[in-house]
Design a protein around this nucleic acid. Structure first.
Lengths: 338, 338
DNA sequence: ATAATCATCGCAATCGTTTGCGGTTACGTT
DNA sequence: AACGTAACCGCAAACGATTGCGATGATTAT
């Protein structure tokens, strides 16, 4: 109904100019005490609040950062958002959230929306469909700093906050080996995603370092609760079924676990399972799920911090890659070291 | 680096006025074909994109809606956000997400931020600390339509999209009764929250309707995974321990389940459990968790739709309360009807 | 008495875009 | 030759706030 109170309204009511009101509000020395008091009183009474849109236009500062994320409904991603939001809040920034729903086309629209809205920076985790990054890199060319997190384009000179997926996968696989498993399968992410490639690489490396031959039929692309079912059944019907599964994320791991239980295969005695993400629900399965904790909240915090830094002082030379530490959370779905 | 391309840049390059460029871009009949082509070509080449901030100021339309939510990292809430974002996306709106972290003070700041940024509407689920709603109602007085979801102020004439908590709790409790449970405990939310009150009410009503006496010592305020542990232990150490637990949300239910399992109490044989929310992880516990599905995504969709409607045609008379249907998802943590 | 200083405030431009209104051509008509 | 009329385009104001610069009046200094 009543439109917002503006400086002009105050000026008109007091019979002074808008400039004076503006200066009075920010305690400029040019303004007399009485005027200041009158202005401040009226402003308080009318509950004047500066129009952030007008300020954005004037200062070319929107105090907003954008986030493009594949899916909000995801323990890991929502943790990241939480971290981002907290940092942004402390720095006086607002957060605009767009979800690509894992679709390339929508990610492009999202990027354009952020561009049009002149966000001061963007945090991006790319969709599974995304192979070309021009729509994102364009933001940076356009003066909008860009920080990728988790799913970042491989071999591109951009700022990223990621985990060392290869190392984490290596550690997870090694743990399976050290607890006596020898026939280790891997439920992998699509090899279009950097994390898919890296985690597979870490898996292979661990096998190699421990003198265990790599078997192609033990690696299946399956990265969701649903896909894990079929994949696991197929694995267990192989002539030589695996005795452990390293899943690319927790939902996949849980899908595998549930399927094994339905097949009356004991976890971890017959088949050990380790996941990736350490979402909340790795705590609540039975058995509880061993997993690689990739610290989503912290990743959000670091990504947002790096972005704010880039906003204040644009990149000088090389871009930065910040690694978030991971660690194995050992629970009941893997065996103990002897 | 290079600041954004504006209409003026195009005008200057083509030696025409900004007005002409503006009109050419929107195919105004006053502009000649050649000029239009020249403008459109250059605009495409320079990748001109209208400055949304300037448009917002000019039209007093920011094409942005705000969301204030207690916590992003929460299956239910992130589902709601997802629904909101999808509807907003389809309608060409952007979404600004603020989390209160369950704190009243922060919620106030959030509301002011939305106000300053002239969002066109706000979707709010209040924090546990919030008893006074002035900071939110003020938005509506100020011309910013307001729709509450899930956690809405009781007995206030506002738009809300909620579930019938009382009825849902009644159904959940009734199911426990119909499957043979007689000593039913309730892990409740704080009685400051409407949902806390309503769910307790539904629980009581179900007992009453089935001639089961209400026992105060079987109701404990505990609404998190952590709090559920102690509460459950206390319940089971009562002279007459319960044979069923109705938990105010899934995390609490899972906390109770885990605790019971640690106490070697069979679920559902000795103690049945039913939760509330039907988060993804109700599927992955062992046994899987029976729960009230409150359809978070759909709630987000409906809330966003109602808000967009209010934005287009401001409220006429009474506010509306939209109920999202719930239904019981019966899994393994409750017994079967005989 | 005149000039200089100070306190206090307003004008106007600016950010990027839109749009009513008016102005300038060139053409056709009588 | 004189006027009407399209066709095309630019001026300027507006959205709300900020800010350099100049203006005003009053006080002080010379």
């Amino acid at each position: 109904m009543s439109s917002q109170i503006t400086i002009k309204d105050i000026a008109k009511a007091l019979n002074i100019s808008a400039s004076t009101v503006s200066r009075a509000l920010k305690d400029h020395p040019d303004i007399s005490r009485e005027t200041k008091e009158a202005v401040n009183n009226l402003a308080a009474k009318l509950r004047y609040k500066p129009n952030a849109v007008a300020l954005s236009l004037k200062n070319s500062k929107t105090n907003t950062i954008g986030v493009i994320i594949p899916e909000v409904v995801h323990f890991f991603f929502s943790s990241v958002i939480s971290g981002i939001e907290d940092v942004a809040y402390d720095a006086g920034y607002n957060v605009m959230v767009c979800q690509s729903n894992e679709r390339y086309a929508r990610e492009i629209i999202n990027a354009q929306a952020l561009d049009s809205n002149r966000v001061e920076g963007a945090l991006v985790s790319v969709s599974k469909e995304t192979h070309d990054f021009a729509h994102l890199l364009y933001l940076e060319e356009n003066g909008i700093p860009l920080v990728f997190f988790d799913r970042a384009p491989e071999e591109l000179d951009v700022d990223k906050v990621i985990i060392d997926d290869c190392k984490a996968a290596y550690n997870a696989t090694t743990h399976l080996i050290e607890t006596g498993c020898r026939r280790i399968a891997h439920l992998a992410a699509p090899q279009t995603l950097g994390i898919g490639i890296q985690r597979l690489a870490g898996y292979k490396l661990a096998l190699e370092d421990h003198g265990i031959p790599y078997r192609e039929d033990w690696v299946i692309v399956a990265d969701s609760f649903e896909l894990a079912g079929d994949a696991t059944r197929n694995l267990m019907h192989l002539p030589i079924p695996p005795d452990a599964i390293f899943a690319v994320n927790d939902m996949t791991a849980v899908g595998a676990m549930k399927t094994l239980q339905r097949m009356s295969i004991a976890v971890p005695q017959k088949v050990a399972i380790i996941g990736f993400s350490a979402g909340f629900f790795s705590d609540i399965t039975t058995p509880t799920l061993s997993s690689v904790d990739q610290h989503g909240y912290e990743m959000g915090v670091e990504a947002a911090k790096l972005l704010l830094q880039r906003i204040e002082t644009p990149v000088e030379g090389k871009h930065k890659t910040h690694y978030i530490d991971t660690h194995l959370v050992l629970r009941e779905s893997t065996k103990r070291k002897s």
